[in-house]
Simulated assay, not measured.
Amino acid sequence: MDLNPKLPTLPAFYQQRIEALLARGSRRLLGLVGAPGAGKSTLAQVLASQWPGQIQVVPMDGFHLANVELDRLGRRQRKGAPDTFDAFGFVALLKRLRTQAVDDVVYAPSYERSLEEGIAGAIAIEANTPLLVVEGNYLLLNDSPWNQVQALLDETWFVDVPQDLRVGRLTQRHQQFGRSAQDAADWVQHTDEPNARRIEAAKAKADVMFRWDS
């Protein structure tokens, strides 16, 4: 199974949505939300590659709490759940990006899967980038402070894929980054899937459903 599925051509409907956001002439934020393994990061990369210089990706995953802090809080085995992120920090970044001064560079964190840690200051966001694609699991969650996120986005797309494809892709991803087949399956069942159910319960709040089947 391909861990990095390709989208050969973005359907015209979605191309038109992107062009409409770009045509507004000022900074816009597009949210991509979906369950773990849905392909949010891949879609974000496709958008950035099709509109080079006009789109930059801002991942929510950079706001994972550090493993040492998760150990202190006793949440390491639930890493990926809403309370294992610096949600207030994420909201603060989105607010700053909406009001970014013309001569300001905003630095956002990235997430390094091989280390399972966030990397501070890894993404430099220039003020003249018109469209930021914000991708993450909890952009539509009702819990505070996540419930502030959608209002900071101009549009939200829910990335939806068949469950068997998503779960298979997710299980293989965990194996790629060092888990045994059994550990990967257990993590998906007991950690990722409870989170997926919470995420999918809020999908009706999205502006657009983005579906792909491969």
Rank of each mutant, 00 (worst) to 15 (best):
T191Y: 06
L94A: 06
P109Y: 12
F85V: 00
W157T: 02
I119G: 02
R76W: 09
F85N: 02
A184Q: 02
S114N: 11
R24L: 15
S110P: 06
L43T: 01
E155L: 13
V33T: 13
V46Y: 10
A184K: 02
L65G: 01
L165W: 09
G89Y: 13
R113K: 15
A48T: 05
Y111N: 05
L132M: 14
V167L: 15
A81L: 11
K203W: 06
N67M: 13
V133H: 00
R27M: 04
N128Y: 11
D143C: 08
G121I: 01
S41Y: 06
L152V: 03
R27H: 09
L30A: 03
V57I: 07
E155D: 15
Y14G: 02
D154P: 04
W51L: 08
A184S: 14
K40T: 01
A120K: 03
V149A: 07
Q163L: 14
R28T: 03
R78V: 08
H174R: 12
W51E: 09
S114V: 09
D2K: 13
L170R: 07
Q175I: 13
Y107D: 04
R211M: 13
P162T: 10
G80N: 07
L32I: 02
A20C: 08
I55V: 12
T99L: 11
E135Q: 12
L93P: 00
E193K: 06
L152F: 06
R169D: 03
R113F: 10
T99Y: 10
V68Y: 10
P145S: 09
R166S: 05
L30H: 07
G74E: 10
S49P: 03
R169Q: 04
F88C: 13
A196Q: 02
Y111G: 00
Q16S: 15
I18L: 06
R76T: 07
H64V: 01
R211L: 14
Y138C: 02
W212F: 14
M1C: 06
I123S: 00
A108V: 01
Q172I: 06
D83T: 10
Q172E: 15
D183E: 15
L115G: 08
E19L: 14
S41C: 12
N4Y: 12
D186I: 08
N128E: 14
T84R: 03
L22N: 05
P109H: 11
P5Q: 12
Q100T: 05
Q45S: 09
D154C: 07
Q15H: 10
A127M: 05
T99Q: 15
L131H: 07
V105L: 12
T171L: 10
V91E: 03
R76D: 06
S114H: 13
V161W: 08
F177D: 07
L165I: 08
L65D: 04
L152W: 04
Y111T: 01
L29C: 08
A202V: 11
Q176I: 04
V68N: 10
H64I: 01
G62H: 00
Q150V: 12
